[in-house]
Design a protein around this nucleic acid. Structure first.
Lengths: 221, 221
DNA sequence: TCAAAAGTGTTGGCTGTACACCCATGG
DNA sequence: CCATGGGTGTACAGCCAACACTTTTGA
């Protein structure tokens, strides 16, 4: 089958930076490419946009293919279109980023990839295409949004402790946060509430909280 | 001439929201469409991306075609790709926004448009395609960036008074700002310096300032 | 009883906000 | 001399950052 047009059209893909917190680190999902170009290199998951498919839907489809997960936070990041970014032909990619709660981590290899793996955001292998640049932009966006939105909550399960939440901030920002100030701040946001339940451990049990509006990301302050 | 591919490709355009301050109002540039679809409707300037052309370069080319201006602040906004946003076929558009200094306003009609005009951002006519939505997103971005960057400076000529700058903020935000507090704040940013010259008028002359790094947009605070 | 993480308030400094009058010029 | 916009300082309040000890549990 061929596609014919009377003026130039472009190949369009979506690529996704899928973040999670794993092993006390900010990590992201890469696939090992099974096909040329960059066969054997690590790359962001992504694929071509179908003619009848919305961009968001395409990104969401790719996300689900790689992780098996739906109902995940997903946001458009930036569109990359340098003419030489793909050696085959001109391809522009609409990049997205997604945040996976740690408890939903379950990973299976997708059909078109030899392997899939989680990598520390700060210790990535060499990436195919301009994917390094895409990751850099995604990290900037993620860190910036921590300060003025409730984005970080999307890394957590439905219920979580205040220490869990603080740990997310500390891992992504890479610096320690004062416990009392953090708790004062997060409670003042009025975005979470106690469930009444406690989490047991080999130490004092911690109060469990839930988001008042699960899944929503609010712009704050 | 025809273009043939072995898998689907998409039509890709860039559209630009060109802002300026004119007549004490935030205005933007629209063109009256000379061709179907939406013939006779007002629309954002834009056009198809050439196969060898970077996205930024395409947006900059369109900007120059409509305004005759180069060296203008231009930033990618968002990519819109609803499958039904163009009645002809699937077209995705990478939207940009640009800020024109008031003193550079000189406008000539472009070849493919019947007419070009500036419109109040708050009183737009009905727009073609999903351009209303694009403008809404651009306005949100513009207002948000006023708070945490020196974006607003891009609306001003090389030299300007503190009152000029305050007026830009007041017009875009739609609210009055205290003069003393504004001056304290803007000088503390350490982004502008006195030229030594004064601007004469039918009243006390005002000190002229210039940006220390003309054209740069800094993230502040 | 020990280790490990949970939980809890106060203070001082700084930043942001409110507010009103005199100055320099051109007409 | 009048109209117009330019230019200037202070005081109070609210917010943010620094800081250490007690509690509860399981092993």
């Amino acid at each position: 089958m061929t596609y014919t047009y009377t003026y130039p059209h472009l190949a369009v893909t979506t690529d996704i930076v899928i973040f999670t917190i794993r092993d006390e680190r900010l990590q992201l999902l890469l696939i090992k490419r099974g096909l040329a170009p960059f066969q054997g290199s690590w790359a962001l998951p992504g694929g071509f946009v179908n003619p009848e498919e919305a961009l968001d839907a395409c990104a969401r489809r790719e996300l689900e293919e790689e992780t098996g997960l739906a109902d995940i936070f997903l946001e458009q990041l930036y569109t990359f279109g340098r003419p030489d970014r793909d050696p085959r032909e001109r391809v522009i990619t609409v990049a997205y980023y997604a945040l996976i709660p740690s408890n939903k981590l379950a990973l299976y290899a997708a059909s078109d990839a030899e392997a899939v793996g989680w990598f520390d955001a700060e210790a990535l292998p060499v990436l195919a295409f301009d994917h390094k640049e895409i990751v850099t932009v995604a990290l900037e966006r993620l860190r910036a949004k921590l300060d003025y939105s409730t984005l970080a909550f999307q890394f957590l399960p439905d219920t979580f402790t205040l220490s869990d939440l603080q740990r997310v901030y500390e891992i992504i920002l890479g610096e320690a946060i004062d416990k009392r100030n953090f708790r004062k701040w997060v409670l003042a946001l009025d975005q979470i509430e106690e469930t009444g339940a406690l989490r047991q451990g080999s130490h004092r049990p911690a109060k469990l909280y839930r988001m008042k509006e699960p899944g929503s990301v609010e712009i704050i302050k």
